[in-house]
């Protein structure tokens, strides 16, 4: 009963939210606006897919916003130096993956709590991005690069949405159809038990952080394509939204739980919430308060469920 509620609640919230906003502002349902929501939510959703994996394995990464900026800047610098867009995108992916590797290695090998490691990394990566660009936006990117954010497939599907679907499918397969997925849940559920069962815990933990880093890199590339510049200040505060998406979608801060579908719904809730707020003329400052409150609510709900489960068992 409670498991069922936990699965159902995010969907129900999303539907209720959409109905409420549509009632207050019919423009919400226009094709143009919905495509806009998809574009705006894409970056968060892509990172949130990686965050789902890391959080299921019992970790967390607070540096995703900085990783995204650093990766976006790295790709932009490559292109500004004359590289074609696809090299720029690969460069961003590689930069993100490298950040993830560093985070994962620190967590797995040095056994520092992920919260601390990635809090430090958040400052480091942002600093590197600012240093590399002197704090200014990287300009002079090829026009064709903009397709990554503004282009359409089949005439009406936004390109970022295509990436979201691909990444979601890939992550879902990774979690439910591979050995790494089984290990991911096992490590998050009980690290020691996983170790004693012969799981190479460190190796997989590193892999999960690299996966998240690469996705943050992809998100960074899409974000710079949207702005057609490499912004060292991109992605500030995104860690909050990404973690919120995972938690709202049923992921647990203590690991072992979470799903791709849940996170997608969680990210959509975040996206619809901010789009609705914009349509209704609610300031972005107020939005921040709302996002923060939603996270606390979601975690409270999760804890409440957990306690009920514990008294049951």
């Amino acid at each position: 009963m409670s498991d069922w509620l936990k699965r159902f609640l995010p969907f129900a919230s999303l539907v209720v939210l959409c109905v409420l906003i549509a009632a207050a502002e019919p423009k919400f349902l226009s094709a143009g606006n919905l495509a806009g929501v998809a574009r705006q939510t894409a970056v968060i959703t892509i990172i949130a897919m990686g965050m789902t994996v890391v959080m299921i394995s019992g970790g967390i990464d607070l540096s995703v916003g900085s990783e995204m900026a650093l990766a976006g800047v790295a790709g932009a610098l490559l292109m500004a130096a004359g590289a074609p867009p696809w090299v720029g995108v690969l460069g961003a992916l590689a930069a993100g993956a490298a950040c993830g590797l560093a985070n994962g290695a620190a967590v797995a090998a040095l056994r520092i709590p992920p919260f601390i490691v990635t809090l430090g990394a958040m400052g480091i990566y942002r600093g590197v991005a600012l240093l590399a660009t002197d704090g200014k936006a990287v300009v002079g990117l090829p026009q064709s690069f903009g397709w990554l954010a503004e282009g359409e497939v089949l005439g009406f599907v936004p390109v970022p949405l295509v990436f979201v679907v691909l990444v979601a499918l890939l992550t879902h397969f990774l979690l439910s159809g591979t050995r790494a997925g089984r290990y991911c849940y096992a490590v998050g559920s009980n690290v020691e038990a996983a170790r004693y069962a012969g799981v190479r815990v460190s190796r997989y933990q590193i892999m999960f952080y690299v996966f998240l880093g690469a996705l943050a890199g992809l998100a960074g590339a899409i974000e710079s394509a949207r702005l057609v510049t490499g912004q060292p200040t991109a992605g500030e505060g995104y860690e909050l939204r990404v973690i919120a998406a995972v938690v709202i979608g049923g992921g647990s801060l203590s690991g072992g739980q979470g799903s791709v579908l849940g996170t997608v719904v969680g990210a959509l809730i975040m996206g619809v919430l901010s789009n609705g707020a914009n349509l209704l003329g609610i300031s972005s400052f107020t939005q921040q308060i709302v996002i923060g409150a939603v996270i606390v609510l979601a975690v409270t709900f999760d804890e409440f469920q957990r306690r009920r489960l514990e008294t049951l068992s």
Binding site: Y185, E192, A193, S313
Partner: peptide, 9 residues
């Protein structure tokens, strides 16, 4: 409990 079971799996 400590080194055997993954309780929520």
């Amino acid at each position: 409990k400590r080194t055997g079971l993954c309780p929520d799996q």
